[in-house]
Amino acid sequence: MSHVAAPPPSGPVPFARENSLKLLKDMLRIRRMEEKCAELYGAGRIRGFLHLYIGEEAVATGAMHALARGDNVVATYREHGHALLKGVPMDRIMAEMFGKKEGCSRGRGGSMHLFDAAARFYGGNAIVGGGLPLAVGLGLAAKMRGEERLTACFFGEGAMAEGAFHESMNLAALWKLPVAFFCENNLYAMGTAIERSESQTDLCTKAASYGVEAFPVDGMDVVAAYEGAKRARAKALADGPVFVEFRTYRFRAHSMFDPELYRDKAEVEQWKTRGPIHTFTARLKAQGDLTEERFLELDAQVEAEVGRAVAFAEAAGWEPVEDLTRDVYAP
């Protein structure tokens, strides 16, 4: 499978200006929050594993804007952006990164395990493929309860080599469940390139073998990501599961412990030319929906939100050791 990025997205953005600016701002919110996380990781404020989504923001942004508030989301350990845009407040996410009790998981999970019942955000799963069966069950519950509720399940292409992928696709298709399987194909399962992990690198062909509609989407283009997710949502609610391959790329290392021996710098640089934020910004400017001043204004608003989130996390408290075994069982 080619690792060469397609030409950068271009052409008019078919949204009202305010909607476009919301998409742009949400991509910036993920980007700036994660840049701050990387900095705080270097400073020792955040520990454990930290998997950055930088480069892939268009996928979560487009998809979350296409979802309804009452939809369920199941995600992976690279889920900061998904959590944020599903409605988990940035300050609660940041406090979770710090391990503080005001964190969205009371500090028990950290970066890989963000949860929020109110936002219907079901994690934050660090077992590759582990979230897929869960999404099937959430879809089953929605269907049996007669709810108009999509379950969106995000996973990387690496998860498609897991048995859980096949079992989940088969179950969802057999039971015609309202589940959207959103594959974020960033070409590498940690350090293993897709052609080294998949005998069939055309992921939509693979998914379609379960009798579900499957289509690819340019995951570097927030417009395409939004439209693809919207189409998938309508289809899944009407007819059962849908598979979408978002073709994307991670600009940073797999985690903070990755020297990136497995890919060429030139490849990374080529994909960066398609960065979802700057290409979208250029398109909006070209059609007169955005000025540099407005961009700087949005960016400043985002930076301020990040600043408040960090301050919240700094000020938050540690869970008392006496509460160590709290919530192992129902009270």
Partner: peptide, 22 residues
Amino acid sequence: APLSELGFVGAGIGAALGGLKP
């Protein structure tokens, strides 16, 4: 269910999260 123990046990967990008692 088909022979998918990992799948349908996980689906049971998801269904429990979704408000059922599997």
